[in-house]
Simulated scan of single mutants.
Amino acid sequence: MKRVLLLEDDQKLSELLTKAVQAEGMAVTTARSIADLEAELEAGGNFDALILDRLIHGADTRARLPDLKRRWPRAAVLIVSAINTPLERAELINAGADDYLGKPFVTQELLARLRSLLRRGGTAVESEYREIGNSVLNVLSRTFSAGENSIALPAKEFLVLKLLAEEPGRVIARNELLDSVWGSYAGADTNVVEATITNLRRRLSSIGSSAEIKNMRNSGYWLEG
Score class of each variant (00 low, 15 high):
M1L: 12
D10Y: 03
L13Q: 10
L17M: 12
K19T: 15
K19Y: 15
Q22G: 15
A23Q: 15
E24S: 15
G25P: 13
G25A: 14
A27S: 15
V28R: 03
V28L: 06
R32D: 09
S33Q: 08
I34Y: 08
L41C: 00
L41I: 03
E42H: 09
A43P: 08
N46G: 12
F47I: 06
D48N: 07
D53E: 07
H57Q: 11
R62I: 09
L65H: 02
P66E: 06
D67G: 05
D67C: 01
L68R: 07
L68W: 02
L68G: 01
R71Y: 00
R71H: 08
A75V: 08
A76H: 01
I79L: 05
I79G: 08
V80F: 06
A82L: 01
I83L: 14
N84I: 01
T85K: 08
E88Y: 00
R89N: 10
L92D: 01
N94Y: 11
A95H: 00
L101P: 04
L101A: 05
G102N: 04
K103P: 00
P104W: 01
V106Q: 12
V106T: 10
L110S: 00
L110Q: 00
R113P: 05
L114M: 06
L117M: 07
G122C: 00
T123R: 13
A124R: 05
A124N: 05
S127N: 11
S127Q: 10
Y129V: 14
E131D: 14
E131C: 09
G133A: 03
G133N: 04
S135R: 08
S135Q: 03
V139I: 09
L140N: 13
L140A: 14
T143L: 10
S145N: 09
A146K: 02
I151R: 04
P154L: 01
K156H: 07
E157I: 05
E157Y: 07
V160N: 03
V160P: 07
L161I: 03
K162S: 14
K162M: 14
L163Q: 08
L164W: 02
E167H: 13
R170F: 01
R170S: 02
A173Q: 09
A173C: 01
R174W: 08
R174F: 09
E176T: 01
S180I: 02
S180N: 12
S180D: 12
W182H: 08
W182T: 02
G183D: 04
S184K: 15
S184A: 13
S184W: 13
Y185L: 10
A186L: 02
G187R: 09
A188N: 14
N191K: 14
A195G: 12
I197S: 04
T198N: 12
L204V: 10
S209G: 11
A211T: 07
A211P: 05
I213P: 04
I213D: 02
K214V: 02
N215R: 11
R217C: 04
N218C: 11
N218R: 13
N218F: 13
S219I: 14
W222N: 04
W222M: 02
